[in-house]
Design a binder for these strands. Structure first.
Lengths: 125, 125
DNA sequence: AAAAAAAGTTAGATTTTGCTAACATAGAAT
DNA sequence: ATTCTATGTTAGCAAAATCTAACTTTTTTT
């Protein structure tokens, strides 16, 4: 399964919901992302088949090692980008929205370089 | 016509080709983007219908006012992002690739703020 | 236990954006 | 003028990611 932007968003959402709600079902993902239940059901089926998530008898979703790796990776980009944009004066709502869109296109190299720049060479407000 | 990422890329390519080649036909766009002739033909038809480009009898393409506005907008983001990434140490090839992907997700606000930051608050190497 | 509500699935449609195959047209070269 | 080559178009296919409608299953409430 080639990981598409859409898949990255689903996995990231599952991670975030796990952190805030403690447990995650398909319906929570649907509500959080504003998608219909069938859309989420379909995506979760693909993720199950590709071992990015496990789903227990009660419908509760957990990320597999690989799923978690992808989710963490994207979430890291998201947080860094949002933080950086806010630091240069972008409104926090806009920064969060933009981070969602930008996080998928950032290469590993740019991610690392921007993270370093942000954390070590931008200590002035 | 809602302008999709794909449309932004086509219009940006037309602008770049106009600048480098002087004139642009569908075949040039196809070669530059690595797409088939039918894909480009179809896209150009939509752009014609939506008055984003004009095509003369010889098949030469010009951007309309609206098409040019979109192309310039995206191209500005592209140049700024690539310049910024290079300035923080990203390899120029990677920076150009990343700029292509990031340019579509950047809001006007983030674009302006990042441009200002890059041009006025990053004068050290 | 029966009914109602919530959650999940299946089937099928739609949109976007690419493709190949086949055809048409135009321009250039011999 | 005929042929070859380049360019463009039409028709139809495919994958990804969404949707609605309808159905099933599970859980909760009474």
């Amino acid at each position: 399964m080639k990981i598409q932007e859409s898949a990255e968003n689903y996995l990231e959402t599952i991670l975030k919901l796990k952190n805030t709600l403690g447990q995650v079902r398909s319906i929570d993902v649907a509500n959080a992302m504003g998608f219909s239940k069938p859309s989420v059901s379909h995506a979760m089926k693909l993720f199950r088949e590709n071992e990015l998530i496990d789903v227990d008898a009660g419908g509760y979703i957990t990320l597999t090692e690989r799923g978690l790796e992808i989710a963490n990776n994207i979430y890291g980009r998201h947080m860094m980008l949002a933080g950086f944009l806010m630091a240069i004066g972008v409104d926090s709502g806009v920064a969060l929205e933009d981070a969602c869109k930008l996080e998928h296109g950032l290469s590993d190299e740019s991610y690392c370089k921007l993270k370093h720049f942000f954390e070590h060479e931008m200590k002035k407000q």
